[in-house]
Design a protein around this nucleic acid. Sequence first.
DNA 1: GAGCCGTGGAA
DNA 2: TTTCCAAGGCT
Length: 383
Amino acid sequence: MASKKRQCLLADLCSRDDHRKPEHSKMNTSIDPQVARIRASLLAWYDAHRRDLPWRAKSGVRADPYAVWLSEIMLQQTTVATVGPYFGNFKAQWPTVGAMAAGSLDEILVAWQGLGYYARARNLYKCAGVVVSEHGGVFPETEDELRKLPGIGSYTAAAIASIAFDQPCVPVDGNIERVTARLYDIDIPLPKGKKDIHAAAQSFISKDRPGDFAQAMMDLGSGVCAPRSPKCDICPLNADCQAYKTGNPARLPVKAPKKIRPERCCVVFWLENADGDVLMQKRPETGLLGGMTGFVSTSWREGAWPEPTEIETASPLSIEWAEIPGEAVHVFTHFRLTMRVLKGKAQKGANVDGFWVAPTVFAEHALPTVMKKVIKLVGENPS
DNA sequence: GAGCCGTGGAA
DNA sequence: TTTCCAAGGCT
């Protein structure tokens, strides 16, 4: 019966969907009163409680599309607190798309190090190039055009279009997904439930302050309609929230059970030359940590340590290696990696694959956090 | 469509 | 300690 209720709701939403009506239809004549109330309540709440964020324009001021784009890419699966300093650094180093396109991928990756999901950085640079070469250095303003750019998917296209250009669209991120699922009490487990939730979210489309509306939903989802302990008592939408009325908003949205995270193991080679420089390699351009810099290691075996023969084969030099006490552990999205480190000294003129880096200039290279943990472990065990 | 792709902070 | 998750995109 819950599903029947939902069917009625969605059919209802579609039939009264004002954004599907022809352009000449009068605005605000056939809008569902509940949707109108939600919009008004949310915008009023936003005007009083909006967050002041580095990439966000002041109230009533049009945002800088470059800043909106840059922040949206950085904010993909990443918290506001984490993004803050990175955004400031990028804006200072590359004030415009043109400046970024004129830079190099390596520079971008160095600045991005530690932020994770490095394909975002590669696509960021690629996108800057396309905006300059195909759009004269000016971001396109429509959702469809934005969607074609590297690194910009359906969410980000709608986010930029609405926030930077006030286009009437609704970017459905995790926040809006959660708020919408609760407003309409949609309990189909994700990702299957996305279809209904996104359809319901589209009923909010309006030509009146779409950018503010999108950001308001995000602020609400972040500070009020939070994943674990929603503050329903102070929520401006509680009068229209189906989940609040009928019971348990905190359980929504329902998510499919997670899969277990496999364990992987590897041995890392810390090779120093006579000057104390350390051997490093640039990783392949695609895949995990693509384009980043790292140390030589065995393959990352699942479930067991590499065999001695594999360690021997993977070592950059046939010399005497000394194992450093302890292990370094790093957790990726889909597996957990435990590393042991072997330390060795290269003879002068030894022929190795890679390049030598002095520890004093590690920071000049694009080192992912997992590699910094290796550095930390070695530093804790001076020879 | 399901798996791949990082990281750090909160509960 | 473990689990969850944060303004997702690509293949």
